[in-house]
Amino acid sequence: MDLVARVRQALSEQVIHPTEFERCACALLQARYPGLAAVEGGHDFGRDADIYLPFTDGSSDVDARGRLLVTTGDPVANLRNGLKRMREEGLRVDLVVVACSNAIDAKTRRAMHQLCEKQQLPAPEIYGQEWFASRLVYERAWRWNLLRIAAEPGALFDDPLEMLDDDAVTIPLVGREGSLEALTAEVRAGHDTVLVGVPGVGKTRLTTELDQHVV
């Protein structure tokens, strides 16, 4: 089992420590939300981090109007309770970001969208298990702290690491028809085949086009 599969399995099967996952979520989402600041202590009023957003009037001032909610449990219940608590405390909310260690299917996403819609808020920005799995492959320290997986990426994967990114764009394979035909024939014949080449020549990219994945 390669590193990507191990991380996915661990997120699905292990008991994830809520506080450690909260710290991990804040750290990994910092790149996407530069104004993110964790709310520490026991008075978070329903949210785990504030996200400082610029005012829409064109001024250079910012204010903490985005809210991050992190959970290792039910994301719908967490969002419902968080919105209720923030409303009771009179906190302004212009953006809701949800981070969850569990898989989030379409039904769950729809339920969270409806909760925000009822509060006249924009659709929540949601980061689930698959997003965290793709990031933890690169983040050795957080991978160890959260899952106790220390292995480095192996030489072969079912997909190149860059294709695991939610934002990645799949680029068509061009000019490798002959190589792909020969490799496909070898795989279908049940032969063991070793693909050799200098780093960066496109070995992993080529193998993703095979009918069967490499192991």
Rank of each mutant, 00 (worst) to 15 (best):
V215C: 14
S101F: 05
R92A: 05
A106P: 03
S134F: 05
S101R: 03
T71E: 03
E139F: 15
R47E: 10
A106D: 14
Q119W: 09
T193G: 09
D94Q: 09
N78F: 11
T207N: 03
V198G: 08
A123H: 12
G128M: 04
P153I: 00
N145A: 15
V196K: 14
H213Q: 09
R148Y: 09
C26D: 12
V196E: 14
K84G: 02
I104P: 10
H191R: 13
D166R: 10
Q120P: 03
V98P: 04
D166G: 08
D166N: 12
R6L: 02
H213W: 05
R143S: 01
K203H: 09
L79V: 00
W144C: 05
V39W: 14
E125S: 02
R135N: 11
A103L: 02
L115F: 00
H213A: 04
W131R: 02
H43K: 11
R140V: 06
V76N: 00
D57G: 00
R205C: 04
G66W: 02
I171R: 15
P75Y: 04
Q14I: 01
V96P: 02
V214R: 14
L11K: 13
E162G: 07
D94E: 07
E130R: 12
P18A: 02
E186R: 07
E152H: 06
E139A: 13
M112W: 00
W142F: 15
A189I: 04
L161N: 08
D211K: 15
L11A: 02
P172E: 01
R109N: 05
T108G: 06
Y52S: 09
W142Q: 10
R32E: 15
G90Y: 12
V96G: 01
A25T: 01
L183A: 13
L3P: 01
V196F: 15
V169D: 09
V4T: 07
L161T: 07
V137W: 11
G42K: 10
D192A: 09
D61V: 09
R85M: 06
L68H: 01
L210F: 04
Q30D: 07
E177N: 12
I149K: 01
K107R: 11
F132N: 06
R92Y: 09
P160C: 00
M1K: 11
C116K: 01
D211M: 12
E139P: 14
